[in-house]
Simulated assay, not measured.
Amino acid sequence: MNVDSIKKDLLKLEEKLLEPEVRTSAIELSKLLADEFFEFSSSGKVWSKKEGLSPKGIGVVRMRLSDFDIYPLSEDTVLTTYKIFNEEKMQYSLRSSIWKYKDTKWQMIFHQGTPIA
């Protein structure tokens, strides 16, 4: 497991999930989110891939990512942590995701957002 390479790859994927063209495409989101994906959102809602993915995706939100890091959990599973600034709400949140490498690609299986002051 090359940690630097994995960190670079997962940062790109996390940033990709912030892009409007990805967030509004159920097809693109389905590639990045595992079937067993679920999220504890920063709004306090809990949703799964099946429940939350509409044909128009998950909606566009202008956000900036910073302070990205990774923590390997096993040979094929990695925890990512970072901070998001929501430019619309003018609010920061701490974020964590769990990514699993399967079928030659990384897919997110869990995500959590926690608002901070």
Rank of each mutant, 00 (worst) to 15 (best):
M108E: 09
E14H: 01
D69Q: 15
H111W: 02
N2E: 05
E36Q: 11
E88S: 14
K8N: 09
S30V: 06
M108C: 15
K49N: 07
A34P: 12
I58G: 02
I109S: 08
V46A: 08
S97I: 03
S41M: 01
K45S: 10
R95G: 00
L33I: 13
I58N: 02
L18G: 02
D69C: 07
T114Q: 04
E75T: 12
S74T: 11
K102E: 12
K12M: 07
K49H: 11
L33W: 15
D9T: 14
F110G: 07
E75I: 09
R64Q: 11
S25I: 06
R62Q: 12
T104I: 09
V61L: 10
K7L: 06
G52W: 00
L94G: 10
V22H: 04
D69K: 15
Y101Q: 05
M108K: 12
S54G: 12
L73G: 10
E88L: 09
E28H: 11
P115H: 05
I6E: 03
L65Q: 10
V46R: 13
E87K: 15
P72M: 08
G113I: 00
K50N: 09
A117H: 12
Q107K: 14
D103H: 13
T81V: 15
L17K: 07
L17H: 02
L32S: 06
Y71I: 14
L53C: 05
L13S: 04
G52Y: 01
P55Y: 00
S66P: 07
N2T: 01
G44F: 14
T81H: 11
M90F: 15
S74Y: 11
S25L: 04
R62C: 05
T24F: 05
K89N: 07
R64V: 12
V3T: 15
K45W: 03
N2A: 04
P20S: 04
S41R: 00
M90T: 06
Q91N: 07
K49W: 11
F68A: 00
K31N: 13
A26T: 05
V60E: 03
T77M: 14
M1W: 10
E14C: 01
K100N: 09
E75D: 14
D35M: 08
I98N: 06
I58D: 01
K8V: 04
K45T: 07
L18M: 10
T81Y: 10
K12N: 12
I84E: 11
S66W: 05
E14I: 00
Q91I: 06
E39A: 00
E15N: 07
K7Q: 09
K8S: 10
F37G: 05
T81R: 15
D67F: 12
N86L: 03
D4M: 10
